[in-house]
Each structure stands twice: as structure tokens, then as C-alpha cells.
């Protein structure tokens, strides 16, 4: 009894009363949902093809990996490790697209934002590209690159490039001129101005762009894998759906949102916080 009290006191100290309460309250609907889901597999109100039993969804992991020779093989991308291959091909595309698209988007955004005339002309292009970007490019990408890696990568890259480009450009444009002049009169070069004024000045806007590109890019990627891909989680759930393997679809969807939530919560949000601390404050142009 005392240990339980001690334990709960310890937890309360660790998380704080409010957060603990929030956590428990927040878990309730999930538990209820899972419970109802479980009841359905017992009483079969809805056909298993429509709502598969939890056990089947869990089982799908092992079923999809059943021919996989082992962890090492899974990491190496052995052809029989179906699930891990789909997961890693989606994630790899995200990483590739980010590695290429983020520097490009930020770089061009800064260059365009530095010049008032150029940015005035490029703004409508940015607006247009952001409103067609993502899904509507898929058919054209398929025509250009055929079904497969190139198309899916292109869709992701295209989505994040324009979002970052636009957000960076707008952020740079809002940096007060006097800050640039200050650095110039200290003898700073153009590169000093870029690295020490434009980049940090546009940082909040760039981070917003980064979070948006993950949100929109990930969705677009899933759609691209469905329509113009031959691997990835999007491809997997699409094929499974046409074969009425609902448990695989459920599994895929759950993985898709977990991957997204994890990147956002554990990567982008901390990055946002860190940069804000690093750059000193939530600096917003007035």
C-alpha cells in the first residue's frame, strides 16, 4: 500500500499533477475505443473485412514479415521483409527529400527575399505552386518519371521545396532593413548579412515552413505512393485495400500516423524550441 502511494507521489512529482490528470483523461477515449473494437471482434457486429480484430492487425506485422530471415536482413532490405521494406522506403524518401529540399528551399528563399523586386515577382509563383503542389502533381510526375521511386520522391521534394521557399522568402522580407545596415556598417559582407541577419531573422518563419512541409509532404507522399509508387506505406495500404486485407490497411494507417506524430513531436517541435532558445527568443518582425 505504501509503495503504491509512494509510487503515485513519485509519478506526480515527475510529471506534475496537471499533466498526470491530462494524461489519464486523454487515455480514456483511446481505451474505450480499443475496448469497443475488441468487443466487435467477439460479437462480430461488423464483418471482419470491415473492421478486423485487433489480434489480426497485430498479427499482420508478423504475417508480413514471416519470410524475413532476421533483423539484419530487414535492415539490409531483404526482399521478403515486406513490412520493414515499405516502412523504410517511405522514410528514406522523406529523408532524401528533406536533405535536398530543405537547403534548396531555404537557400533560394533567402536569395529571393533579399531583393524586393525579385520577391515581388516570385511571390505569385510561390502562391500558385503551393496551391497546386502535392497531390495534383502526381499524374504529371507519373508521365515524366513513370511509376516508382522518382515520382514519389519528386512529389515530396516538390511539396517541401515550395513551402520552404515561400516561407523563407516571406520571413526574409520581413527582416527590418536597419538590421542589415547595422551589420554593413560594422564591415559585414553580404555573406555576414545572410548568415547573421537574414537567416536568424527568418528563422521562425523557416521553422513554420519546415513543420508545414512535413505535414503536407508526408500526406502527399502517401498519396503519391498510392497512385504512382511501387513501394512504401501508401502503396502497401492501397494494394492491401484492393485485396480486402483490412488488417494490413489498419496496420499501415496506424504506422503512417505514428511516424508522422513521432517526427513532429520528437524532432520538429524540439527543433523549434531549441532554435527559439538558441536564437534567443520568439522573434517576430514587428
Amino acid at each position: 500500500m505504501t509503495t503504491i502511494t509512494e509510487f503515485s507521489v513519485a509519478i506526480q512529482r515527475r510529471f506534475g499533477r496537471q499533466r498526470l490528470r491530462k494524461f489519464i483523461l486523454g487515455m480514456i477515449p483511446f481505451i474505450v475505443l480499443i475496448f469497443v473494437w475488441h468487443l466487435n471482434s467477439i460479437f462480430v457486429w461488423l464483418d471482419p473485412v470491415e473492421i478486423p480484430p485487433i489480434a489480426d492487425v497485430w498479427g499482420a506485422i508478423f504475417w508480413l514479415q514471416s519470410d524475413c530471415p532476421g533483423v539484419i536482413a530487414a535492415i539490409e532490405g531483404h526482399g521478403d521483409c515486406i513490412l520493414t521494406n515499405h516502412v523504410s522506403s517511405s522514410i528514406l524518401r522523406v529523408i532524401l527529400a528533406m536533405v535536398v529540399g530543405v537547403p534548396l528551399g531555404i537557400g533560394f528563399g533567402i536569395l529571393a527575399g533579399m531583393n524586393r523586386v525579385v520577391s515581388a515577382y516570385l511571390e505569385p509563383i510561390g502562391v500558385f505552386m503551393n496551391s497546386v503542389s502535392g497531390i495534383a502533381w502526381i499524374p504529371l510526375a507519373v508521365v515524366w518519371f513513370g511509376v516508382g521511386w522518382e515520382t514519389t520522391l519528386f512529389i515530396m521534394l516538390n511539396t517541401i521545396f515550395w513551402l520552404l521557399f515561400f516561407n523563407t522568402m516571406m520571413g526574409v522580407r520581413a527582416v527590418p532593413k536597419v538590421l542589415i545596415q547595422g551589420v554593413q556598417t560594422l564591415g559585414g559582407t553580404r555573406l555576414d548579412a545572410i548568415l547573421q541577419v537574414y537567416l536568424p531573422g527568418a528563422m521562425t518563419s523557416i521553422i513554420t515552413g519546415l513543420r508545414m512541409s512535413m505535414a503536407f509532404g508526408w500526406r502527399a507522399l502517401i498519396a503519391a505512393e498510392m497512385i504512382g509508387g511501387d513501394s512504401g506505406l501508401g502503396f502497401m495500404i492501397f494494394v492491401s485495400s484492393s485485396e480486402f486485407k483490412t488488417e494490413e490497411v489498419f496496420l499501415g494507417i496506424i504506422l503512417i500516423s505514428i511516424i508522422f506524430l513521432a517526427t513532429d513531436r520528437w524532432l520538429l517541435v524540439p527543433l523549434e524550441k531549441w532554435t527559439i532558445e538558441r536564437w534567443g527568443l520568439v522573434w517576430k518582425p514587428t
Binding site: G26, R219, I222, M226, G234, F238, F250, G252, I256, S257
Partner: peptide, 17 residues
């Protein structure tokens, strides 16, 4: 939290279901 989870399951991803 539930809403947050379902929002991150985008409309496109639920399409196959």
C-alpha cells in the same frame, strides 16, 4: 489527444479503409 491522433491520420491515409 484523440483528435490529435486522428488529425494526423490524414484523410488520404484513411482512403483505403
Amino acid at each position: 489527444p484523440l483528435m490529435n491522433f486522428f488529425q494526423s491520420v490524414s484523410g488520404i491515409a484513411i482512403f483505403p479503409i
